[in-house]
Structures are given as structure tokens and as C-alpha cells.
Design a protein around this nucleic acid. Structure first.
Lengths: 122, 122, 122, 122
DNA sequence: GTGGTCTAGACCACA
DNA sequence: GTGGTCTAGACCACA
């Protein structure tokens, strides 16, 4: 389910947290379903348990999972996470558009470009 | 011209390179104009010259400046830089929109949102 | 009567003990009334009986319930519990006010703030 | 400056972070002043550097300090931290008062009690 | 020197 | 079994 990319410059724990974040947002991991245990995942990925622990800690801080000590880590309420994430992404797009405008991008060009993106077709 | 934000988590050299990048794209630093010398800027910012050197190396790698040995660092051709940067930014926006779509964003909503951004008014 | 919040970070036994504490202080559970048996409650909540047992032990240590072997767990004298708890809470408020004072809170501001709280209206 | 209390049940990193939080809020550590380096403090307290690292990480996440890689950890803007903390504390007091009210506390009693606290005299 | 990441391995509380 | 904390020690990027 999780594959580590050793060419990725980011730290392992961030990579792992990010993978889970996407699996949760895409709905592959359903709400309240259990994530693999720290030790199991560490074994699977041939990685130190501390690193997994850290990834899970981040996910909890960001609200993607909740922890029941002695039981495991579980996926939080998805719909609210999706809304939150959508806002965050639109905010980032706003920042990028401001930069793009400074490079000469005009409103119509932006709208035409986005209108034509292939991603909408899928 | 350059102000360092110590609360910025990024390494200093990256921050400095980024500041110059923006000054160049905005046209504050004109084409073929000379950047401050490594030593002078290091003095001004009370920073290790190595850090400035690394920032300039970055800028050269990214094509924003060109070096003439013994004479200094100079701003590259701006128009092509702007076009390049614009493409890069739109590409990043594309990636973000793919993620946002997975979180439930629809085409019309994206267009309406971008249409309404205040940045276009300025 | 008891609902478990798995998103609560505290251990289950503490959560359960706390819920009962509130039910007793609010008077929902009357003095000398019997609490559900360890086994029954464990079944109801789909939880390990050991966890319930630990919660009840806590409640007994804190004086909220008394145990009659072979008969069950019963609510202690409420009025004295309420007085005890009130003192405890005011003591905690004292500690928090000391900290708030170090952050610049003045006596008048504290009184005005507390005076204006909506909780008194109910 | 920092003393560890091994009788304290809380984890070491939390204890250490909390001590620094108070030193910062009280103004003992002034804005932009440098905290001891991870390694030095670890030596001083005879504690593993990882534990200090973790304490500092928390402080950064909570906004109490900012990090410059290769330089050290520094105290954030105090006044805003104090305001934030004051709000947080008053919010906690609100919660405690709600509980106290359920135990029979009346508005006048609360105000009289707080009015009379010795902490205001200092 | 300074912080950041990671491994290896131990011990604890909770369920 | 499951997560949480901690030690010991290594290696890296940045300044």
C-alpha cells in the first residue's frame, strides 16, 4: 500500500505521512478504518518503528487520524478533512496566481488555461 | 533591497536566491544589471559569504543570472525567464487542481473561485 | 448513558471514570443508586471488562462511589462530593489566574471577563 | 535554568517544553534571545539530545520559538504569545466555571472568591 | 557548531 | 498486541 521512494529528498516520515494523507483523502482508507500498526508497517517497509511513529504523530497533529492507545491508529472523519484540504489547496493556487500575474499572466489566459486542462475530462 | 526573515524555516541561501528571483521577475532588477558582490552583500546582511555564494550558484543554475569571472553576477534575459516561470507556475497549479478535484472540487467551482479572486482587480 | 469518544486522547478508563463523575455531580445518578455491573457495562460498550474495572477503582479512590462486595458499586453522598469538587475547581482557577496574571491580566479585567460570561445566564 | 522533576508523571520533553514556555511568557527569556543548543542542554541535564530536540520541536509547533538551521533556536515575539496564552487561560477558566456551576457555584460567590484571591496583592 | 533525520533497541501504560 | 517515551549513537545539510 505504501512504497518508499529513496530518491525523494523529503524525510521518510514526511513521505509516509503524505502517502497516508492522500489515501485518506481519496477515500481508499475509509473513515474509522485502522491503519497498520507501527510495528507491522515498520517491518513491511524495513524501516525503524520510530520513523513510522513519527509519521503517525504528524498525521494525528494534522487531524487525519486519531489514536486509541493500546488499540491503534484510525482514520478521522473524511468529509471535513476534504473540505479543509480543498480550502488549503485553493489558497495555495491563489498564491501561485499572484506570482504568475507578476510574470504577465492575465485573467482571461488563466481561465482559458484552467478551462482546457485534461484533468476535468476524467 | 534584501531583508532576511529569520522566522522563515527555509535555509538562508534558498531564501536569498528566492528574493532575487522575485526582484528579477518583477523587473526591479533590470536585464544585464549587476547584482551586489558576494562580499558586499554578506557584509550588508551580516551573513557568511559562503551563504551568499551558494544563493548565487542557485540563481545561475536556474538561469536567472549569468556570471562573468572577475566582473560579477548579472541578470539574464527577463522576458524568457518570465515565460518559463509562468509555465512552471501553471504546471504547479495543475497539480494542485488534480488534488483538489480528488477532494471534490468541480470544474465550475474552480473557475468561479478563480474568476472572483481579488488579485485580478489590482 | 455512557458514550465513548474514541477521538479523546485520554485512556478509556479515565474517560469512563470522568463521565460517571459528571453524572454523579449533576445528580443524574442519585445518591446510593447502583452503577451498572462491570460485566454488563463492558458488554454494552464492547470494551474489555478490565477497563471498566479500572474506571470503577478510580472512582472509588476519588470517593465518588463505594463498593459492597458481591452487591455492586454505589454512588456516595453527593452534597459533600459537590463541595469537594467545587473547592478543587476554584483551586485550579486560582492556578490559571496566576499564570494569566504573568501574561498581563489585571484584576479588573478578570472580574469583568467572568462577570460577562454567558454561562451565568442559563 | 531548567530543572527536571523525575517525580513528575509527564514525559521529559513535555516538562522541558513547559518550563521554557513559562520562562518565555514571564519574560525571563527575552524576544529573539537564543535558547541553549540541543547538545549543550542535553549535556547539562544529562539527558539524551533527542529528548531536547523533541521539546524544542514542540515549542516551535506551538509558536514559542523559531529555528534557524545551523544557528539555533530563538524566542518568538513575546507580546503576541502572551495575548494568545491569556485567551487560552481564560477559556480554560470558563470551562472550569461551567463545571463549578454544576456543583452549585453561584455568580456572586465566584466573583467574591476571585476578588479575594491573594495573587492580586503581589 | 547547530539543528534534523534515522536506526537499534529498551521499557512502560493501556486494552 | 498497541502506541508512547527514552537512550545511545550515527550521519547529513547548513552557517
Amino acid at each position: 500500500m505504501i512504497v518508499i521512494d529513496y530518491k525523494d529528498a523529503r524525510p521518510l516520515y514526511e513521505q509516509i505521512a503524505d502517502k497516508f494523507k492522500h489515501l485518506i483523502l481519496k477515500g481508499v482508507l475509509e473513515q474509522d478504518s485502522k491503519l497498520p500498526s507501527v510495528r507491522n508497517l515498520a517491518m513491511d517497509l524495513s524501516i525503524n518503528p520510530n520513523t513510522i511513529q513519527r509519521a503517525y504523530e504528524r498525521l494525528e497533529q494534522m487531524g487525519y487520524i486519531y489514536v486509541i492507545k493500546g488499540r491503534g491508529n484510525f482514520v478521522s472523519h473524511q468529509e471535513s478533512l476534504r473540505e479543509e484540504q480543498k480550502k488549503e489547496l485553493l489558497c495555495q493556487i491563489n498564491s501561485l496566481l499572484i506570482e504568475a500575474k507578476e510574470c504577465g499572466l492575465r485573467k482571461e489566459d488563466a481561465l482559458t488555461y484552467i478551462e482546457a486542462l485534461s484533468l476535468w475530462k476524467e
